[in-house]
């Protein structure tokens, strides 16, 4: 049941991104984003960009906007700690920025190393001037992303949707 839910929200979120005319999806892989990344790669219009570090994604999407396209950055909460300086550019230039962040280091976390960054994620985003929408109900993810996309692309703001670990769980791919 949990897996079905997961697929469902990813599909709905993807529809929302398409409707918002997102054409570039930059990502550092995370288990919680697996379905979305697959859909982005399979899509004929969306250009998927795999990154070595999340800060590249903030720069790519700044360029996307400068070049006339909308984009979204997918990452895990630990990646938020890699983008803080680059967010200074998006903040200074008031570039729209849409980030979908799957949380680690909170609900039921089993790896202690994830906890410090997970607990700091919301705080550092807010310290960087990013508007944060947090969502813990699978049924509310798509509408939250839709609202965040409007705030980002029409309101001209940096917006992060934090998807709770309670929703994404954690699939251990090494098992």
């Amino acid at each position: 049941m949990a897996r079905k839910k997961k697929t469902d929200w990813s599909k709905d979120v993807f529809k929302v991104l398409k409707k918002a005319d997102v054409q570039q999806i930059a990502y550092v892989p995370d288990a919680g984003h697996t379905s979305l990344i697959k859909m982005a790669i399979a899509d004929n219009v969306i250009k998927p960009v795999s990154l070595t570090s999340e800060q590249e994604g903030v720069a790519v999407l700044s360029g996307a906007w400068l070049g006339g396209e909308a984009g979204a950055l997918l990452m895990q909460s630990s990646g938020v700690g890699n983008v803080i300086n680059m967010l200074g550019m998006a903040n200074e230039c008031r570039f729209p920025l849409l980030m979908l962040v799957t949380m680690r280091g909170e609900w039921g976390e089993f790896n202690p190393w994830q906890v410090p960054m997970g607990q700091a994620t919301e705080g550092v985003l807010e310290a960087s001037g990013v508007i944060v929408h947090r969502v813990d109900e699978p049924s509310e993810i798509a509408e939250t992303v839709e609202a965040a996309a409007k705030l980002a692309f029409e309101g001209g703001r940096m917006v992060a949707v934090l998807i709770g670990q309670r929703v994404v769980g954690f699939k251990d791919w090494t098992k």
Binding site: P29, D30, A31, T34, I37, S50, T52, W173, T174
Partner: peptide, 11 residues
């Protein structure tokens, strides 16, 4: 590949 997150390609 990123083995811990579903074997997506690395560069």
């Amino acid at each position: 590949a990123y083995g811990a997150t579903g074997n997506q390609h690395t560069h």
